[in-house]
Design a protein around this nucleic acid. Structure first.
Length: 869
RNA sequence: GCGGGCGUGGUGGAAUUGGUAGACACAAGGGACUUAAAAUCCCUCGGCGCUAGCCUUGCGGGUUCGAUCCCCGCCGCCCGCACCA
């Protein structure tokens, strides 16, 4: 019997080496077993892993190790999302090369990840900044360009003045750059775009099939794509010397309210506005004002509705002889619909605010149910609910839906400017994905601009277009553009002097296909389609909710684009998706309000109350709220530190315990200590049981009632943990393992003689296998103590004796009038009538009945009995 | 404003989604062992009575033999989107 404590510091590196030598986690593509692909979102090589990584990779590793034990061929790779701005910033600060900084960080983080004992196939490691990776991305870009999935167009872009680069709409949060936090400006630039909007409908529809995704993420994507069905409608302009235009085209989702129209609104960026502004200083000033406010003042402040009357008028399309004024209004967006609307103030709040301000008519045309049309009037709130159309000529009496159909048919039959006046149209909020970034540390866009031939792709034989090494970052902006020679090339078509594209790709492109590259990381082509199709879609993808829209939507698009260009045979990259919660920690503040890291404080508790003081100075510390671990609040705990003190298994176990994985988990010192205590407890238990077994040479058959009871507990735990892991309920699996451990420890104490030894031994063996996905090092050490063959990492998941999962007796609670009053143990599946007879005969029931017959007796087989008196 | 989620002991959370509410863990209190500490082990732990009983899943109603779960109305917190016509 070993009285020694388990020492993770010795044992963890030992087992990591053994796994390495055994190539335990190297996956072969030609392995005939069923494939299972589990992937955690790959990290940005910032230099150090944080607790969020630990949680993420611990979860993925449990899934990987479990499915491996289940006999599947598991692919569990790791790589680096290695391009990006921080490397350039570091280069400026440290006068080093972004690549050198990045690869240094990769080495450091790789060592940290290895110390966690993750079952990763490191032979498949990829870094997106390697030409071996990005040359394939360039090849696919050219394929997609040729397939018409890429376009170059001039457009208004979000310009981040701090990072000096363009941002996609998705990267602008509350009017600020997602990384720099700087207020984003609008600029007109020629940019490369992926035509993701061509896939809007497909990306939307396919969401219904993603049943392995959180509903929340699907809803977020649905809202982001933002489909709306409506009518494109032409309004005839009355002749005016101000413009040659003869009509204005608007988009509306409420054509049923056309009889209530009282004005036309143009976006400040509408071409007609621009034209009119050249002749109207007042309008020009208004447009300029809108631009100042447009993105500079955030969207949060409820900008007042403002507009300028252009003096133009359009014919009311359904009321003969009436005309409507044309305004330029600040609340109309150019990049949605047509950049022009018709305003129906009675049934749209914005239009109502606008109409009230400028004294425009407010005519209700939708009558709420059970309302008197004579007395119905609009106050300061537009009526946007259901009802029937009135005040609307031939639409009167129709429902909103029927009126929409009727008016669409009506306008389809009429023409303005030789075109149908109305046309049903579907609009999406989703914009094309602008990928041009004016940065050095990214994948070069492989095209050449020639004065003669235009913009032409780099021939594939000339790939990769490699980033030059000799760059300086002294000037702000794009170091690639500043390079003296790199961009000067000859046109591959005509040989004339030409210029390389110096923009690089958004790093979200890099992460939109890395999961496919992992399936054949050394292939000469971006993928080996047959191999990719065998592994993909990823069975279980795990990562943060912050990527619910951007990364996941881009990856879904890119997979479709890869399918269209023959690189994969499927459309959806991720079958199962799981978004894990954040790791939080208490915050601490010193006397001057400065943040203090947890390592610098000492917590003192007296009974229920906790207080803190500074570890070295003794100064009082205020314990603040629990927040996401962040450098700025200094409430971070370093994984290295934890691994050194408690071991990787303890950190993993704690990250998986207690909190459901999708929710935030709070890191606490006592929680880690609890996890560490459990580790020792398992170690002691296994050693004790082995010791007892050695002392009793007698192996008595384990068929006593006690042994049978214990075996039931063991087999139930095995079945339950499997079920919990499959449902990603790691906290529940942990609770079950605690229960099993408690039961085994109790049985060990109770067992004085040899009678339970065989069962106890079975119990600890299975316990070790159950903890293996979570605490793999401890499991190997225990496996060794148990003198089992081979590694537990290679051992199959323990068999469950199904017969032990069913009881032949059940204990039913007895309720009287719905309140629990007792219980009865009967044979399983005993007919209801017999149960009823037994229960009615009980003394407590007789007493409650007091000689009367029960009003009702409800017997739910194997569940409950309820007697109504 | 629109969309979605959540609310259970001192704390994190269980509860086979209509069938014994509070599993498991943390914290706390008491005890054993020890010269002492650590470690370990045992006991108590929703509230009021403390004996038999009553109350208890944010609040108020409803459906039901039975509601943490379903319906209606409030209150509070969190997340996403946001002038999208």
């Amino acid at each position: 019997m070993s009285g020694e404590r388990y020492n993770p510091r010795e044992s963890e590196p030992k087992w990591q080496k053994v796994w390495d030598e055994h190539k335990s986690f190297v996956t072969a593509n030609d392995d005939p077993r069923d494939p299972y692909y589990v992937l955690e979102m790959f990290p940005y090589p910032s230099g150090r892993i944080h607790m969020g990584h630990v949680r993420n990779y611990a979860m993925g590793d449990v899934v990987a190790r479990y499915h491996r034990a289940r006999g599947m061929n598991v692919l569990h790779p790791m790589g680096w999302d290695a391009f990006g701005l921080p490397a350039e910033n570091a280069a400026i600060e440290r006068k080093t090369h972004p690549g050198a900084w990045t690869y240094q960080n990769i080495e450091a983080m790789k060592a940290q990840l290895k110390s966690m004992g993750l079952s990763i196939d490191w032979t498949r490691e990829i870094a997106t900044c390697s030409p071996d990776y990005y040359k394939h991305q360039q090849a696919m870009f050219i394929d997609m360009l040729e397939a018409g999935l890429v376009t170059r167009k001039s457009s208004k872009v979000n310009w981040d003045p701090v990072d000096m680069t363009v941002l996609a709409n998705e990267q602008v949060i509350d009017g600020k750059g997602w990384r720099s936090g700087a207020v984003v400006e609008q600029r007109e630039l020629t940019q490369w775009f992926f035509k993701i909007s061509d896939f809007a409908e497909e990306l939307l529809e396919a969401l219904d099939g993603l049943t392995g995704w959180p509903e929340k993420v699907r809803i977020m994507q649905r809202n982001w794509i933002g489909k709306s069905e409506g009518l494109r409608l032409l309004f005839e302009l009355q002749a005016s010397e101000k413009t040659d235009a003869t009509s204005i085209e608007v988009f509306t989702t409420r054509p049923d309210t056309i009889f209530g129209a009282s004005f036309i609104g143009l976006s400040p960026d509408h071409p007609l506005t621009t034209q009119l502004a050249t002749a109207s200083p007042g309008l020009a000033e208004f447009v300029a004002e809108c631009h100042r406010h447009g993105t500079a003042t955030e969207t949060l402040e409820k900008a007042e509705k403002q507009g300028v009357d252009t003096g133009l008028r359009v014919k009311h399309p359904v009321i003969e002889g009436e005309t409507l004024p044309v305004y330029v209004a600040n609340f109309i967006l150019m990049d949605y619909g047509t950049g022009a609307i018709f305003g129906c103030p009675a049934h749209d709040q914005r239009d109502l605010d606008f109409a009230r301000k400028y004294g425009l008519p407010v005519k209700p045309v939708v009558l709420p149910p059970d309302t008197d049309p004579a007395s119905f009037a609009i106050g300061n709130e537009a009526y946007v609910d259901t009802g029937n159309i009135f005040n609307s000529g031939f639409l009167d009496g129709l429902s909103i839906e029927d009126a929409k159909k009727a008016i669409a048919e009506f306008f389809a039959a009429r023409t303005v400017d030789g075109k149908p006046q109305g046309k049903i149209e579907v609009n999406y909020r989703l914009r094309d994905w602008g990928i041009s970034r004016q940065r050095y540390w990214g994948c070069p866009i492989p095209v050449i601009h020639c004065e003669v031939c235009g913009t032409i792709p780099v021939p594939k034989k000339d790939l990769p277009v490699v980033l030059p090494e000799d760059v300086t970052f002294e000037k702000p902006g794009n170091a690639l553009d500043h390079h003296p020679t790199w961009k000067h090339v000859h046109c591959p078509q005509c040989g004339a002097a030409a210029r390389r594209e110096t923009d690089t790709m958004d790093t979200f492109v890099d992460s939109s296909w890395y999961f496919a590259r992992f399936t054949a990381p050394d292939a000469d082509t971006p993928t080996i389609p047959a191999v990719a199709d065998r592994w993909l879609p990823v069975d279980q993808y795990i990562g943060g909710i912050e990527h619910a829209i951007l990364h996941l939507l881009y990856s879904r698009f890119f997979t479709r684009a890869m399918k269209a260009t023959g690189h994969v045979g499927l459309s959806e990259p991720f079958k199962g998706m799981f978004t894990q919660g954040m790791v939080t920690h208490e915050t601490y503040k010193g006397e001057k309000g400065e943040w203090v890291p947890p390592t610098d404080i000492v917590i003192e508790s007296e009974g229920e109350t906790r207080s803190a003081r500074h570890a070295t100075t003794g100064a009082p510390i205020t314990i603040g709220s629990v927040e996401k671990m962040s450098k700025s609040k200094k409430n971070v705990v370093d994984p290295d530190e934890i691994v050194r003190t408690y071991g990787a298994d303890t950190a993993r176990w704690f990250m998986l315990s207690d909190s459901p994985p999708e929710r935030d988990v709070q890191w606490t010192e006592s929680g880690v200590e609890g996890a560490s205590r459990f580790q020792q407890r398992v170690w002691r238990l296994v050693n004790d049981v082995v010791g007892i077994a050695q002392q009793s040479s007698d192996t008595v058959a384990s068929d006593s009632a006690d042994a049978l009871g214990l075996r039931k507990i063991i087999h139930r735990a095995v079945a339950g943990v499997a079920q919990d892991i499959e449902g990603l309920g790691f906290n529940r699996a942990v609770a079950r393992i605690y229960e099993l451990t408690n039961a085994l420890a109790k049985a060990k104490e109770a067992s004085k003689g040899p009678e339970l030894v065989t069962t106890l031994r079975e119990g600890v063996e299975k316990l070790v296998q159950l903890i293996n996905p979570m605490m793999p090092h401890l499991a190997e050490s225990c496996w060794e103590v148990l003198e089992k063959q081979g590694l537990v990492a290679d051992a199959p998941w323990p068999e469950v004796d199904q017969a032990l999962l069913v009881d032949d007796e059940v204990t039913l609670p007895i309720q009287i009038n719905g309140k629990r009053r007792g219980e009865i143990t009967v044979a399983k599946d005993l007919p209801a009538a017999e149960v009823e007879a037994l229960v009615l005969a009980l003394e407590l029931v007789q007493k409650a009945l007091d000689g009367k017959a029960p009003k009702k007796v409800v017997v739910v087989p194997n569940r409950i009995v309820n007697i109504v008196v």
